[in-house]
């Protein structure tokens, strides 16, 4: 089995604060590894070590067969990095930003022109190409940032929370880009705070919290741990809550969570459950205003894995800080 990148026992400390406390992760060539975790879990620190921007205090990381510390120069020739904060120059135009990256990557003039044109078109930036980047919207800057990371056709791409702050449509677009990259044989590491994003894109997911890996596996395995999807129902009349709960319990054979703000939720037992619930609700004539299949979110994952929610954790950290 050949790993495109692999880290073992990464440790990074800042004074008394331990940002990473022995992180292991690996991605096979041509796959997407999702690194899932709340703010401050150590996702960005991990990416920065893999991208040769930080030296680990302990442990080692191999990217494209090269050690990130001893062979940093070689690693840099294999990777593309898109940081959490758009790292493009606001004074330069879109074209100038990409051309600069191309020149720094030793591409030839005609190669640069072709590549810039192609990437601008791919990321829907052709019209804005001649405008200074400071006039771009947040989403446009993100796209340009990603395009800049792809100028050198890197074999391995690190995307640090690439969709944070993007609206849903742009998020979908970016997912499309990631899928195209992987179809071309690129290996991608993607950090995210959203389980649905990791689920949509990743072949494998590593969940980190407080600088430690608390779970890793395929999305299916992870969902098995956290209980997979739930059916969520909001009866039109709150008086129907009990009756509705009884239907859900009967159909799925699972315990229904106590209603929260008029919404009932029950774990999916088997594939036919959802249609069966729809049919049964219709038969007993309960009108609903909301009826959906829902993936557990990061909070659910964390609650299952650690016994507390990601939000609580962030609060605790804020208090500690």
């Amino acid at each position: 089995m050949s790993y495109a990148f692999q880290a073992e026992g990464l440790v990074k400390r800042y004074g008394d604060f331990t940002a990473l406390d022995g992180v292991d992760l690996a991605a096979e060539a041509g796959t997407v590894l999702g690194v899932l975790g709340p703010n401050g879990a150590g996702k960005t620190t991990t990416v920065r070590i893999l991208a040769t921007l930080l030296r680990p205090d302990a442990g080692r990381a191999i990217v494209g067969g090269c050690d990130v510390v001893a062979e940093a120069g070689r690693v840099r020739r294999l990777i593309g990095l898109t940081g959490q904060f758009a790292s493009v120059d606001g004074e330069l135009t879109g074209t100038e930003n990409l051309a600069l990256i191309g020149r720094l990557l030793d591409l030839r003039g005609n190669e640069i022109r072709a590549r810039v044109k192609r990437l601008l078109a791919d990321f829907d930036l052709t019209e804005a190409a001649r405008r200074p980047v400071k006039t771009y919207s947040g989403g446009m800057r993100r796209r340009l940032d990603l395009a800049a990371g792809l100028m050198g056709r890197p074999a391995i791409v690190f995307l640090d929370e690439p969709t944070t702050g993007l609206d849903p449509a742009k998020r979908e677009e970016l997912w499309g880009v990631v899928r195209r990259l992987v179809a071309d044989g690129t290996t991608v590491l993607l950090t995210t705070q959203y389980l649905d994003e990791a689920d949509a894109l990743a072949d494998a997911i590593t969940v980190i919290d407080h600088g430690r890996v608390i779970a890793d596996g395929t999305p299916a395995e992870l969902k098995r741990i956290v209980g997979g999807q739930s059916i969520v129902v909001r009866p039109a009349d709150e008086a129907d809550l009990d009756k509705c709960g009884a239907v859900l319990a009967t159909v799925t054979g699972r315990r229904v969570d106590s209603p929260k703000r008029g919404v009932l939720s029950v774990p999916v037992g088997s594939d036919g459950d959802f249609t069966a619930v729809v049919g049964e609700l219709d038969r007993v004539r309960i009108d609903v205003t909301e009826l959906a299949l829902q993936l557990p979110d990061l909070d659910d994952v964390f609650f299952k894995l650690t016994g507390h929610t990601a939000a609580e954790e962030t609060e605790q950290e804020a208090i500690a800080a």
Partner: peptide
């Protein structure tokens, strides 16, 4: 997880690093 040392560039034909040209620093 296999050990890190197993992975060598030879195993990874997809990794074609960006070619280097002379006088890099000046350019």
């Amino acid at each position: 997880m296999s050990t890190v040392t197993e992975t060598r560039p030879a195993d990874l034909p997809v990794f074609a690093p960006v070619a280097r040209r002379p006088f890099g620093l000046a350019r």
